[in-house]
Simulated scan of single mutants.
Amino acid sequence: MLLRVPGVYRPQSDTHLLSDAISDHAMRLGTRAIDLCTGTGAVAIHAARCGAARVTAVDVSRRAAATALVNARLARADVEVRRGDLAAPVAGREFDLVLSNPPYVPTDPAAPPPHGAARAWDAGGDGRSVLDRICRAAPQLLAPGGTLLLVQSALSGVEKTLAMLAESGVPSDVHARRSIPLGPVLRSRQRMLVGRGLLDAAQRTEDIVVIRGVKPS
């Protein structure tokens, strides 16, 4: 059971799909892992429980970082928690396993930048304001032979993620896919998404996927 304060993303289907992918991963001895956009710390704690030797959790939100720290201590998981913008707090460090469940929900292009709890899911007009940054940062974050496990919605351009990672030297594929009912955030902006061609009018589900990339040794 994880503690969660208002304004921190609640672990749900995408969190569970990413955790399943971690369970599938062959954890090497001494694995250094990082969880970007950690929220409650659920993914970081799971990585530690799956055998990662050193786990770092990062979130830009003060509430999320504090929540992740408390949850790691309650779980007696050896997780280092840092507050900051993606990989900025760990500049120059390399990891054998990079994990992330970032914001990926498309917003109205005319909407102001997200604030408060919405920062955990709103990601610009195409849903890629954070995904693109992770794709660009992956080659520097990954140690040779390291693995990236990244979860996103199919609405946010899976093929673009695969192409960006390939161009950066991290060949990738879709490791897992799950269809889930549209959540309250997507339902609330369904008309806008249909109007932009991102969602079919009759669509009641979305696909979420885990992208798996491996940096060549």
Rank of each mutant, 00 (worst) to 15 (best):
A64N: 04
A64F: 11
A65W: 12
A65G: 10
A66W: 14
A66I: 07
A66F: 10
A68F: 13
A68E: 14
L69S: 15
L69A: 15
L69K: 13
L69H: 13
L69Y: 07
V70M: 07
V70W: 10
N71F: 10
N71E: 08
N71R: 12
L74S: 14
L74W: 09
L74K: 11
A75V: 09
A75Y: 08
A75W: 07
A75D: 13
R76L: 11
R76H: 13
R76K: 15
A77V: 12
A77N: 11
A77S: 14
D78F: 00
D78A: 13
D78E: 13
V79R: 08
E80W: 03
E80R: 15
V81F: 07
R82T: 01
R82Q: 02
R83E: 13
R83V: 01
R83H: 01
R83Y: 07
R83Q: 13
R83T: 03
R83I: 01
G84Y: 02
G84P: 07
G84S: 03
G84H: 03
D85V: 00
L86V: 07
A87M: 08
A87K: 04
A88Q: 15
P89T: 11
P89E: 12
P89M: 10
P89Y: 11
V90G: 04
V90A: 01
V90Q: 07
A91K: 15
A91C: 09
A91T: 15
G92W: 11
G92T: 12
R93W: 05
R93V: 02
R93I: 06
R93H: 10
E94M: 12
E94V: 14
E94P: 00
E94R: 15
F95S: 03
F95W: 04
F95E: 01
F95Y: 14
L97R: 08
V98I: 02
V98W: 00
V98M: 08
L99R: 06
L99V: 02
S100T: 08
S100Q: 09
S100R: 02
S100K: 10
S100A: 13
S100G: 05
S100M: 04
N101W: 00
N101C: 06
N101S: 07
N101F: 00
P102R: 05
P102I: 01
P102T: 01
P103E: 04
P103W: 14
Y104E: 03
Y104R: 00
Y104H: 11
Y104F: 14
Y104N: 00
V105E: 01
V105C: 10
V105K: 04
P106G: 08
P106N: 11
P106D: 07
P106L: 09
T107N: 06
T107K: 07
D108Q: 06
D108F: 02
D108H: 01
P109K: 03
A111M: 09
A111Y: 03
A111C: 05
A111R: 10
A111T: 05
P112L: 04
P112F: 09
P112T: 01
P113I: 06
P113W: 05
P113V: 11
P114K: 12
H115I: 13
H115S: 15
H115P: 02
G116W: 06
G116I: 11
G116N: 12
A117S: 08
A118Y: 00
A118K: 06
R119N: 00
A120T: 11
A120N: 05
A120S: 15
W121H: 10
W121I: 14
W121S: 04
A123V: 06
G124C: 12
G124Q: 07
G124T: 08
G125M: 09
G125W: 00
G125P: 05
D126F: 00
G127A: 05
G127S: 04
R128A: 12
